[in-house]
Amino acid sequence: MSSLSAFEVSREDLDLAAAGLEEPSDPGRWSVRVRGLHVTYRTPVDPRANTLRHRAMRMARASALRRGATAKDRGFREVLAVRGVDLDVEHGTVLGIIGANGAGKSTLMRAVAGILPPSQGRIEVNGRISTLLALGVGFNGNLSGRENVVLGGLAAGMTRRQIAERYEQIAAWADLGEFIDMPMKTYSSGMYGRLAFAVSTHMDPEVLLIDEALSAGDAKFKRKSYDKIGELVAQARTILLVSHAMGTLRELCSEVLWMHRGRAVALGDPEEVTAEYLRFQEVGEEPVVMEDV
């Protein structure tokens, strides 16, 4: 673990070590390791809480009361989006993630991508991360597809030469014709999705995070993107795929994780887990027993 020596040991680290959870990590085998992950958002109870007036009123009231305040009293509600997830993903795995809306799927993906800070726990990713998240790429709708591709690559920390080497492949895969040099605001959502997919898969990713990005395309695009995913997996690249399309997951994934209310309910064979999930959705019961998993 010499590569980790640059970090200060946090309290969580010590806790994990004490609980015997900290095993010697083997970057050769694991692509993504998640240990005891919690992600908590703090959202204002009152939508005006971010304004000066609101703050001033609160401060005045608080000084009048002088009482111990909880998070809610301070005007915040804590949203526990992910509550204690452990996950090990081997290189070359396609892991599907399913769950109802608000189950914490996208939050988990953003935490693995390093966008959202964990409030507890630890995430280890071995390999270059590329993201294709729900909101898509694109910096400026006034700029052309070509310019946005370059900007995306530069923001990801690539050099101009590395981008130039990949650009032709990206343009050919996205197959946008003359639209590639037109402002992105003129694109249809399918074209947008095609370019976004082309960029994230051609940036030589070792860990690719895809969040409901395959749904916008037509049948031809779907076929092409399945093939591309298969190609990446053949090169031992790891893919985390959030989707509501059970058919897609059954076709592409080697494992499926079912999340419910921020917790991992089941992880295993795609057929079994998706069937179980569908049964659960039809029944609509609270999985009281499963919540303790």
């Binding site: 590569s3 980790l4 970090f7 946090s10 969580e12 680290d13 970057p27 050769g28 085998r29 919690h38 290189h91 935490a111 693995v112 390093g114 800070p117 964990p118 409030s119 507890q120 726990g121 630890r122 995430i123 280890e124 990713v125 071995n126 390999g127 270059r128 991360i129 070792e206 031992a236």
Partner: peptide, 14 residues
């Protein structure tokens, strides 16, 4: 890395 060559490692923690 198992496939040979250097691999980036990212660690995100609280």
């Amino acid at each position: 890395g198992s496939a040979g060559g250097a691999r980036q490692q990212h660690v995100f923690e609280a």
